[in-house]
Every structure is written in C-alpha cells, then in structure tokens.
C-alpha cells in the first residue's frame, strides 16, 4: 500500500512538472506558429527596405528596422562600460560590507523592479527636460535642440533600464573566475590592476557577453521607455543625428494594431512587422551567443 502511494506520488510529480515544461514549449510554439502563418507571406525584400506608405496601410518597415537597430546599438554602447565598471568596482575594489557597495546593490535590485513605463517618464523628466534643457541653455540654442525626444535620450533611458542586468551578470562572471588564478597572478608579481586586466576580465568575458545578450534582448523589445523619449509615430526619414526621432518596430507594432483606420488591410503588415521584430531579437541573441561560445573556446584553448 505504502509502496503504491509512493509510486502514485512519484508519477504524478513527473507528469505535473513535465506538463508545466510542456506548456512553456507549447506557448512559444503557438506564438511562433501564429506569427509565421500570418506574416511570412508578406515579408519580402521590398517590405524590409521601403518606408510605410498609404497612411501605413502599405509599404515596408525599413525606418523602424533601422531605428530599432540603431537604438539597440547605442544602448549597448552606453550600458556596457557603465555596467561592467560598476560590477568591477563592486566585486574587485569595494570592501565587501562597505556602505557604498551595499547602497549600490540595493539600488541595482530596486532598479530591476521598476516598471518600464516609469523609466520612460524618468527619461522624459531627467534626460530631456533636465539634461537636454541644460545643454540647450549652455550651448545657446534658441530653439529646442537637445530638449526634445531623440534617439540618444531613448537609448540612454533603455541603458538605465538594462543596467541591472549587466551589473548582476558581470558580477556573477567575476565571481566565477577562480581565486587560484588571482593568487597565482599576484604571486608572480603582478599588481592588482594587471591581474584584473590580464586574468580576471579575460576569464569573465564569456559571462560579461552573456550580460550583453540579456541586455540587448531585453532592450530591443521594450516600447514603454521610448514612448516619451524618442520613438516617432511615422517618420519616413532615417534618424540623421543623435537628437533625431526614430521609428521603432515595437512601437510600430502598437501603432499598426491600434491606430489603423482599416484593421483588415493592416493585419498582414502587422503580422510581418511582429515577425521581423522577433527575428531581429533572435538574430541579435544568436550573434552574441556565437561570440560567447567563440571566446569561451578561445579561452579554453588558450590563444
């Protein structure tokens, strides 16, 4: 009897956990299937390389594609140095129980929990109305130049949003570098900074790139933070300078889904846009994963 009960409990646990795992896969498969079914036929070279036309009921998505890529790139350039340096300070230099380190950790944890729309408002309030206005005043612009939504401010807002991801994963990567390697380096007469540059950071590089992967895939898909800070409803021209507005795939999706006068006509466009957004995110991830595997293999083979 007891034996039988144990078997039942065991079996039901296996099926329960298996079912939960299956639901995840099924969800992803359903989403992908739906998106591909609705969008694949509409994707063409023309769709990818042309601007929207006919009140967004025709044409392509090139400005949105370009805007998303540029935005993500700028965000990565902004977030990686700050995030990595912060993590290096926290893990390598700050006294473990120091007040500053603790304050930074609390800030990072809380930053990660802030809803993304709040980051958008923060970007508007801080970057555009405070920093931008200050710049305009200091540089003597009569009209609004920096104090308006633009790609720089949007990417900086996204950088703040993804900062916790980069800090946490970099710190994790630094922690994973064996203590042995540090002591060996110091025992050979290397200074702490040489040890950091030659042993610790190269050893942590795969983990740091993982942080970049996570930050990019998070940042590329966010729409709320860029609503007030730079994304444009419709803008056939590509952003030409750091204070230009830009189109964005995520925002474009929202616009197509909710603002179109003819829902039926827009539907294939909408599906295709979503599919491109997904493909772009996957591609970015794939590139970063490839870089990571390569560095890891390089590190292991020692070149």
């Amino acid at each position: 009897m007891k034996h039988a009960t144990r078997r039942v409990v065991g079996l039901s646990l296996v099926s329960l956990t298996g079912l939960a795992a299956f639901v995840i896969v099924a969800m992803l498969a359903l989403i992908l299937l739906d998106v591909v079914k609705g969008g694949a036929s509409h994707i063409s070279w023309k769709f990818l390389t042309e601007s929207p036309t006919d009140g967004m009921m025709g044409g392509g998505i090139f400005p949105a594609l370009f805007g998303t890529a540029a935005l993500t790139l700028l965000m990565t350039l902004a977030v990686m140095p700050v995030g990595v340096l912060t993590a290096v300070y926290l893990h390598e230099y700050a006294p473990p129980d120091g007040k500053l380190a603790r304050a930074v950790r609390v800030a990072v944890a809380n930053l990660a929990g802030v809803p993304s729309i709040v980051f958008g408002l923060f970007g508007l309030g801080f970057f555009i109305l405070f920093v931008g206005k200050g710049l305009d005043r200091a540089l003597g612009y009569e009209e609004l130049h920096w104090a308006q939504p633009g790609i720089l401010w949007a990417s900086l807002t996204l950088a703040v949003l993804t900062l916790p991801v980069v800090i946490v994963s970099t710190e994790e990567a630094l922690r994973a570098v064996p203590l042995d390697h540090r002591t060996a380096s110091l025992a050979l007469g290397a200074t702490q900074s040489q040890t950091l540059a030659r042993v610790v950071l190269p050893g942590a590089l795969p983990g740091i790139l993982t942080g970049a992967v996570l930050a990019i895939s998070r940042g590329a898909g966010e729409v709320a933070p860029i609503l007030f800070t730079g994304a444009a409803y419709f803008l056939p021209d590509l952003p030409s300078s750091l204070n230009s507005q830009f189109m964005h795939l995520g925002y474009h999706t929202y616009v197509l889904a909710t603002q179109s006068p003819d829902v039926e006509a827009t539907r294939p466009l909408l599906y295709a846009t979503v599919m491109v957004l997904l493909l772009l995110t996957f591609a970015l991830n794939l590139v970063a994963v490839l870089i990571r595997t390569r560095t890891r293999r390089k590190a292991a083979s020692g070149h």
Partner: peptide, 23 residues
C-alpha cells in the same frame, strides 16, 4: 610561490610561463 593545486591560467603554455615576464 608554487601552490598545492596546480593553477595554470587558461592560456597557452607559452603565455603561462611568459606571464610574470610580461607583467
């Protein structure tokens, strides 16, 4: 110093030996 557990860097044989000289 030589440690109890051998702790070569994940680098080439040459770079391991050259490490102290390079730093």
């Amino acid at each position: 110093m030589v440690f109890q557990k051998s702790n070569p860097f994940p680098k080439s044989i040459f770079e391991n030996v050259a490490y102290g000289l390079r730093v």
